[in-house]
Amino acid sequence: MNIVLANTDHLADVAMLFDHYRVFYHQLSNVHAAEEFIADRFRNQDSTIFLAIDEDSGVGFTQLYPSFSSVSMGRVWILNDLFVLPSHRQQGIATQLMQTAANYGRETGAIRLVLATEKTNTAAQALYESLGYQLDQTFNHFALTL
């Protein structure tokens, strides 16, 4: 298993995984739109994507978006996406991707990584807790659909 910083050479693999990820979260499959979305992320350099490669094929990815904390006056990375193909789960790939993201956060001087997942995604929650992530008990997070 090899974890790499994805670039445009990896577009097809990342887009395929991104599409699977969206389907997992109850969205309709649209590989073309997924490829356009990921291509925009590469072109605009507004996210960082790590890709897990097994035998020359992408099998998992994580995508980080930059943010900042005004109160702490520091960089924060939003770990927005994490996905591993069902055929490659329970092999430590998600853990490797998460550890790579954490190392990247440290290397870029971030003060923390933040993430969210569905309340019913207990497998992901167990992984996050095993890696030291803690459920935020301080803040209520709200969203406004536009």
Rank of each mutant, 00 (worst) to 15 (best):
S67W: 07
L11G: 01
Q134Y: 01
F142L: 11
F42I: 05
G60A: 14
V14S: 00
I38V: 15
D46C: 09
D13T: 06
D56R: 15
T100Y: 10
T48R: 14
T122Q: 11
T62G: 14
A123V: 07
T145C: 00
Y25I: 02
N44W: 01
H26D: 11
A126M: 02
Q27I: 01
S70G: 09
S29F: 09
L64I: 10
V114L: 06
Y133P: 01
I78H: 14
N44M: 06
H10W: 07
G132Y: 02
A6F: 04
H10Q: 11
H26M: 06
S87Q: 14
E55L: 12
W77K: 12
Q99G: 03
Y21T: 08
A123S: 06
E55G: 06
T100W: 08
R43K: 13
N103V: 11
T48P: 04
V59T: 13
N7C: 12
F24R: 03
S67M: 13
S57M: 12
I38F: 01
I3E: 09
I53H: 10
Q96L: 14
A123I: 07
Y21C: 11
L97K: 13
L51Q: 10
M1R: 09
L146S: 01
L82K: 13
F83Y: 15
A12P: 01
E107C: 09
N80V: 08
L131C: 03
L146Q: 00
T48Y: 07
L82N: 13
V76N: 03
I111S: 07
R75T: 10
N103Q: 15
Q91V: 05
N121E: 00
V71P: 02
Y65V: 13
Y133I: 00
D13F: 03
D54H: 13
Q134M: 07
N80E: 15
V23K: 12
D46F: 06
V23S: 05
F50Y: 15
V14M: 01
R89E: 08
S70A: 13
N140V: 09
A101N: 04
P86S: 02
V84E: 04
L146W: 01
D40R: 11
V23D: 02
T62Q: 14
Y25H: 05
